[in-house]
Design a protein around this nucleic acid. Structure first.
Lengths: 199, 199
DNA sequence: CCTTACCTGTCAGTCACTGACAATCTCGTC
DNA sequence: GACGAGATTGTCAGTGACTGACAGGTAAGG
């Protein structure tokens, strides 16, 4: 009980992570096959080999089986942004911070495009998707505020506007990328979007 | 059955609209008093004097009792944008198109601030709020595309980026306006946000 | 008056999600 | 190897949003 902080038992956390991944994977398979709303949680539970109740001990909601990993992406963006030199202006810093995420997307292009298409085809999932992306803004806000000059009074407002707009560009670029099946390079789409906004 | 198009019986449609408004109003009152999730649909139905089943004949979901009217706002924005001269660039046209909406918000400042605060305090409502706002972009997209020059190939992508960013600025401004209780003028907040993005 | 279409209440059912309890398992410790 | 604490699980029971089906009532049109 001494070190409440981290490391845990190690194994507990590892198996828990594995089970979580297993649930998410079979859930995605069933969703892709039968549709999100047509698949019940009990079906997923049966497929994994556990009770429906226990599934909810790994995922707070059914939707989180799809978008649950997106919180980590937000943290990744924030870390990448913090790693940029402090004298860089917000826009270029944000653009560079997005690069690792773009690389991850293009690395598993097939998987990510398939997932993006499922999200697009399932209206019930769009709200939670937008919600996750909105939380990315929260993670990027403090660092962006620090990069701004001018009146302190409006600094947070301006930072919010910039972060929200930059993420909007990212959304637009990724959507277009998935919609066209990865034909066009993701980097170029994002740059086009960002340039259009700042012109 | 002849004219399927419009006009209907007139009276039917009027009473229907009135009942819908009545439900939304009492729902908002109960939500403000007891919270959104603590208020059941049956409670609302009892207060209005009808069965819980019938409430769902006026609103597809419980959340729509709060954000249902937002579709009209999107249409209003689109109309205002269409009324702007065609040689106006996207940003200024969008800014002017938002003005009527800003005026509506400030006219019923107390009501709208109270609603915005309730939305902010109720995490369960944020997804559907974001969803409605995302649909505004769809309504503004065609007209904005028409105002763009440059390569046709990237025109829609750039239009999406601009519309999404402009709406993001609107969100940020309105949130800040509601958060500070209407102290700062909404126009100025929006201009600050837009300027910060385009600088 | 009568037909037609709509509105409504009631009943029954699905499904996501939650709390409580007891059985089981794992781990660190003696 | 035995033991006790804490975590994990299945089961049961319940809430609440939402849906389909059926039947009675009411208003519009001929």
């Amino acid at each position: 009980m001494a070190n409440t902080a981290r490391a845990k038992s190690g194994l507990r956390e590892m198996t828990r992570r594995a089970v979580r991944a297993q649930i998410a994977e079979t859930a995605m398979t069933l969703f892709a096959a039968n549709g999100f709303e047509q698949t019940t949680v009990d079906q997923i539970a049966a497929e994994v080999g556990m009770s429906g109740r226990s599934v909810f001990r790994y995922f707070p909601t059914k939707e989180d089986m799809v978008v649950g990993h997106m919180d980590e992406i937000g943290e990744g963006l924030a870390e990448a942004l913090a790693a940029r030199p402090l004298d860089e202006d917000p826009w270029t810093a944000l653009r560079h911070a997005m690069q690792p995420h773009l690389d991850e997307l293009t690395a598993d292009a097939d998987t990510n495009i398939a997932m993006a298409r499922m999200l697009d085809a399932t209206p019930a999932l769009r709200p939670s998707l937008l919600n996750k992306r909105a939380r990315w803004a929260e993670a990027l806000l403090p660092d962006t505020t620090r990069r701004l000059r001018g009146p302190t009074r409006t600094r947070e407002l301006r930072a919010r506007a910039i972060v929200s707009s930059a993420l909007a560009c990212l959304n637009v670029a990724v959507d277009e990328w998935a919609r066209t099946g990865g034909t066009k390079p993701l980097d170029g789409l994002l740059d086009t979007a960002l340039t259009a906004v700042r012109s």
